Amino acid sequence: MKKYIPDLYKSFLLYLILAITIFTPGTMSAQNKNMMVRISEIEIFPEFLSEYKAVLKEESSASVKLEPGVLAIFPMYQKNDSTQIRILEIYSDQDAYQSHLKTPHFQKYKTTTIKMVKSLKLIDMNSIDTESMKMLFRKMNE
């Protein structure tokens, strides 16, 4: 019994050290350096707009729900021109993005909407303040 308590204590200490390492702000910033952020600028042919929006809504929801590496896929459109779609995409890293491209729901989105898209521009971004980003996601859950 004496050996069990010290082993349990060691395990607890290791988990505590791991938790502190993972959740300290400096470490979180280091992890976020691998994060991939992209803005997709898409123009849709007007005659396909409602169909495109329905397919996009289904795909973005499935991506966030089913893929742990997809942190956000937030589709939106311009107020003065609803054919101008913008999607904020945030992935935990490049591997998560590559994995996302191979999923059945993304493949369905891509093949279904190809005839609907008039133009597509992918813009990779760097985040300026990842600490505030964490607050944003936390506030959304309140």
Results as ranks from 00 to 15, higher is better:
Lys10Phe: 05
Ala19Cys: 04
Phe23Arg: 14
Lys115Gly: 03
Met35Gly: 08
Met135Ile: 04
Thr27Lys: 04
Glu67His: 09
Asp7Leu: 07
Ile17Gln: 11
Val117Lys: 06
Ile20Phe: 12
Asn141Thr: 15
Ser63Ile: 06
Lys139Leu: 13
Arg86Thr: 02
Ile20Trp: 09
Ile87Pro: 00
Met35Cys: 11
Asp81His: 01
Asn34Ser: 14
Gly69Asn: 08
Ser132Tyr: 08
Thr103Trp: 08
Pro104Glu: 06
Glu59Cys: 14
Ser99His: 00
Lys57Met: 00
Ala54Lys: 14
Lys33Leu: 03
Thr111Lys: 03
Lys121His: 11
Phe106Val: 07
Lys134Cys: 12
Ser29Gln: 07
Met35Tyr: 01
Ser29Phe: 08
Ser127Phe: 11
Tyr77Ser: 12
Ser119Asp: 05
Val70Leu: 07
Ile39Met: 11
Asn80Gln: 12
Asp81Thr: 07
Leu14Ala: 10
Glu59Leu: 07
Leu49Ala: 08
Leu136Thr: 10
Pro46Ala: 05
Glu47Trp: 08
Leu49Asp: 08
Ser61Gln: 10
Lys139Ile: 08
Met125Pro: 07
Ser60Trp: 09
Ser92Thr: 11
Leu122Asp: 12
Arg138Pro: 03
Phe74Pro: 02
Val64Met: 07
Glu89Pro: 01
Pro68Phe: 03
Met1Cys: 11
Met133Phe: 11
Ala30Thr: 01
Leu71Gly: 05
Ser61Thr: 13
Val55Lys: 05
Tyr97Asp: 06
Met76Trp: 03
Phe48Ser: 13
Asn32Gln: 03
Lys121Asn: 06
Leu136Ala: 15
Thr112Val: 07
Ile17Tyr: 10
Thr83His: 08
Lys65Met: 14
Phe12Val: 05
Arg38Trp: 00
Glu43Phe: 06
Ser119Val: 01
Thr113Lys: 00
Glu142Tyr: 12
Met133Gln: 05
Asn32Glu: 00
Leu14Trp: 10
Leu18Thr: 09
Ser11His: 06
Ile39Pro: 03
Lys2Glu: 15
Leu66Val: 03
Gly69Asp: 10
Tyr4Glu: 15
Met125Gln: 15
Phe45Val: 04
Glu51Val: 05
Ile87Ala: 00
Leu56Asn: 09
Ile22Trp: 04
Asp129His: 11
Leu14His: 12
Ile17Pro: 02
Ile114Gln: 12
Phe45Glu: 14
Lys110Asp: 10
Thr111Arg: 04
Lys115Ala: 14
Met125Phe: 15
Arg86Ser: 02
Ala96Phe: 11
Met116Pro: 00
Thr113Met: 05
Gln78Lys: 04
Phe74Asn: 04
Lys108Ile: 01
Ser127Met: 15
Gln98Thr: 08
Gln84Asn: 04
Asn126Gln: 12
Ile87Thr: 01
Ser119Arg: 00
Gln78Ile: 14
Gly69His: 10
Met133Ser: 12
Ile5Ser: 09
Leu71Glu: 09
Thr27Gln: 14
Tyr9His: 06
Thr111Glu: 00
Ile20Ser: 13
Arg138Thr: 15
Asn126Cys: 06
Gln78Arg: 10
Ile44Lys: 04
Gln84Ala: 12
Leu16Arg: 15
Ile39Gly: 01
Thr112Trp: 01
Met76Ser: 14
Lys121Leu: 07
Glu142His: 11
Met116Lys: 02
Leu8Gln: 02
Glu131Met: 11
Leu8His: 02
Glu47Phe: 13
Tyr52Gly: 07
Asn32Gly: 03
Met140Arg: 12
Met116Phe: 03
Ile73Gln: 14
Leu88Cys: 05
Met36Trp: 02
